[in-house]
Amino acid sequence: MKAEALKGHLDALLLATVDGGAEYGYAIREVLRTESGGEFDLPTGTIYPALYRLERGGLIVGQWTKVGVRRRRRCYRLTPAGRRALVAQRASWSKFSTAVSSVLLQERTWSTTT
């Protein structure tokens, strides 16, 4: 699935992924890919701008941490505002998807009477 198709949902997906424990860019991409059954196989480069946007909006916070012998890595976690945003996004998505499903998946038989 292309990044374009996720437009409007990527922020919520990233918040959920970070909330689930994926801390850094590569892990976030892999979790998105595996948890979606391979549907959300985004180029990693498109994930960082969204992470930076979420960070600037105060929804996640990034921090450099030491990994292994000499490497450092930027790890992200949700802020309280990010947690609240995720709760709101989940509720909004649940309502939206239920409504869309009820319309889209219902089989109707139209009868015309004269």
Partner: peptide, 21 residues
């Protein structure tokens, strides 16, 4: 909800333990 298997990509953390390529 925190899933342990989501904390790192499957196959573990590839970056840990190696300094440079």
């Amino acid at each position: 909800m925190v899933h342990d298997h989501l904390t790192r990509p499957r196959g573990g953390d590839p970056g840990a333990g190696l300094a440079e390529l």
